[in-house]
């Protein structure tokens, strides 16, 4: 297996994403460091979700490669790919909980699939993960019986089931009230601090970006490339160009 000299959790090497003839993003190079809370930002439709799908292996890039912990994820065999995917948790925009299963069953699923833990350990782990996201006692509830914010947190509990090294979030604050959204941001920071989990967040919620981001890239739909990167607070202080400045200041002239 090819190892890069210094293995960072995620490294994108000349990633190009296209749908048919329509090139969305071209030759993206970036690196996510260990313990980063890495923000992917940019206007609507610039390809943030598509990039996330590429990083998580749900979609192949039209060009370039993704390295996860130094392993070429894009070119990996099916089994190697699965091993890598196991180490990544994903929180989908809507939570993507299986609606015919209780929260406990949802979270137990990856544990049953990938570990040989006893049922009692699994159920303890499930309760623990639910407690982590502030949903202690909701084991027997169905997704339809809880609110949107709770669904996202339950989705996070499922994403955390296998103690992933990297957790991806697609627009975690979309559709949440400010308090739930803050709660989720706090959770992200806490996970990052206590477990050292590397975190990648797609968002355009400014308050989140400044509160949690330690590193970032800014995607631009027009040039189909990364036009800025680094700590969001630094970017706000010294915006490298007008697009980034307007984005980070909510369009102030």
């Amino acid at each position: 297996m090819i190892k890069t000299a210094e293995t960072s959790p995620i490294q994108a090497d000349k990633i190009t994403i296209a749908y048919g003839d329509f090139v969305l993003l071209k030759d993206l190079d970036f690196k996510v460091n260990k313990h980063d809370v890495f923000i992917i930002m940019g206007g609507s439709g610039c390809g943030k979700s598509s990039l996330l799908r590429v990083l998580t292996g749900l979609q192949n890039p039209s060009g370039g490669e993704v390295f996860i912990n130094g392993t070429n994820f894009t070119k990996a065999e099916e089994t190697a790919k699965n091993d890598i995917m196991k180490k990544c948790g994903i929180l989908y925009q809507s939570g993507a909980l299986f609606s015919s299963m209780t929260l406990a069953e949802n979270i137990a699923l990856p544990l049953q699939q990938y570990t040989d833990y006893s049922p009692s350990l699994i159920s303890e782990l499930v309760s623990f993960k639910l407690a982590l996201v502030g949903l202690a006692g909701f084991e027997e509830f169905y997704p339809s019986e809880i609110s949107g914010g709770m669904k996202k947190r339950a989705g996070l509990a499922r994403a955390l089931a296998l103690d992933p090294e990297i957790v991806y979030f697609d627009e975690p604050s979309a559709g949440l009230d400010p308090i739930s959204s803050k709660l989720l941001d706090d959770l992200i920071i806490d996970l990052n601090r206590s477990l050292g989990t590397t975190i990648v967040v797609v968002t355009h919620e400014l308050s989140s970006i400044f509160a949690i981001g330690t590193n970032s890239i800014f995607l631009d739909g027009e040039t189909k490339s990364i036009i800025a990167g680094g700590n969001p607070n630094d970017l706000l202080r010294n915006p490298p160009n007008e697009t980034v400045r307007r984005f980070l200041t909510r369009g102030e002239k």
């Binding site: 623990f128 407690a131 982590l132 502030g134 949903l135 202690a136 006692g137 909701f138 709660l183 959770l187």
Partner: peptide, 10 residues
């Protein structure tokens, strides 16, 4: 601590 932080009962 996190697990005990928001111990909301249904």
């Amino acid at each position: 601590d996190l697990a005990f932080a928001v111990d909301r009962k249904p």
